[in-house]
Design a protein around this nucleic acid. Structure first.
Lengths: 149, 149
DNA sequence: TCTTGACCTTCCCATGATGGGAAGCTCTAT
DNA sequence: ATAGAGCTTCCCATCATGGGAAGGTCAAGA
């Protein structure tokens, strides 16, 4: 099948299939004489694997590792589990960062009248900086930390 | 003061100060004869405002709006509150997405022996796709949704 | 006064995962 | 034969941020 059908069957866009090929996450696809990429059921299975891993927030690097383990019939499940749990820890860290922001903002908004008057504790806090530490800590982590997925 | 000192005083890197100027978030800085940017206490206050807003996850667009409101002494606090609460809603949506991923992964990892044997429910799930819907929904939201900050 | 080193300038490139779109070739159904 | 859908490669944009090169400026010390 061509790339469009593989995309539909796997849930990975044609654009991304080409991208994954270009960065070496998947092997170069076979080509027809005219240069069209062709995929078989096996390739689609791999793409589905990738899509599910991506949907769980794994990065391309993590997916590379998971794919290798998936193919390695002698793998140790401990390694898969380690990757998964590391990823969970990362996700939970991001959740804590976001919760810190939401908590601060919700608190500030709760003290803002939200009417036609200009007085606003939200702006006051941004200007003068309230309890700087909690926020600053999360912010530093966010700035230096990993990106989404 | 020069850009380096302003950066130290505000917590915004010199690189980012130039970037914020280039995109119009802040006004063009005054220059010395030699072309060096100069900043006064007022500019540093603005930069601090920006840093705190950024640390709370506001995007550049949101910061533009907040800065304008901060300067507008006739603002209505309702508008500030709206921006803040919209942002909180976005953050909470991201938190829910991440929680969905963490939940699924923690569940799978909980069923993985994590030893020398190759059997691994995590890989099995990625290969065959377990309860597809919950994850797929969050994933679609994530793919189509806004980025961090 | 000259040198050194810290600081500044602009410009270009990279990130990660993804989409948009143009120019041009191929295939299939009418 | 022609239309239209689908494929190819290539370039660009996102968002906020950092890295680094090439070169100009400034202040302190010899």
């Amino acid at each position: 099948m061509n790339i469009g059908e593989a995309a539909r069957a796997s849930g990975v866009s044609a654009k991304m299939i080409r991208y994954y090929e270009s960065i070496g996450l998947i092997a170069d696809a076979a080509r027809t004489e005219a240069g069209y990429r062709t995929y078989d059921r096996n390739d689609v299975e791999t793409l589905r694997f990738i899509r599910r891993a991506r949907d769980l927030g794994f990065s391309v690097d993590e997916m590379t590792a998971l794919l290798a383990l998936w193919r390695d019939k002698d793998r140790e499940s401990a390694e898969v589990k380690r990757i998964a749990l590391d990823h969970v820890a990362d996700i939970e860290r991001r959740i804590r960062e976001l919760q810190g922001m939401a908590r601060t903002l919700a608190h500030l908004a709760g003290h803002c009248h939200g009417d036609h008057r200009p007085d606003c504790p939200i702006l006051e806090d941004l200007a003068e900086g309230g309890p700087e530490d909690a926020v600053a800590e999360a912010a530093t982590a966010q700035r230096t930390g990993f990106r989404r997925r």
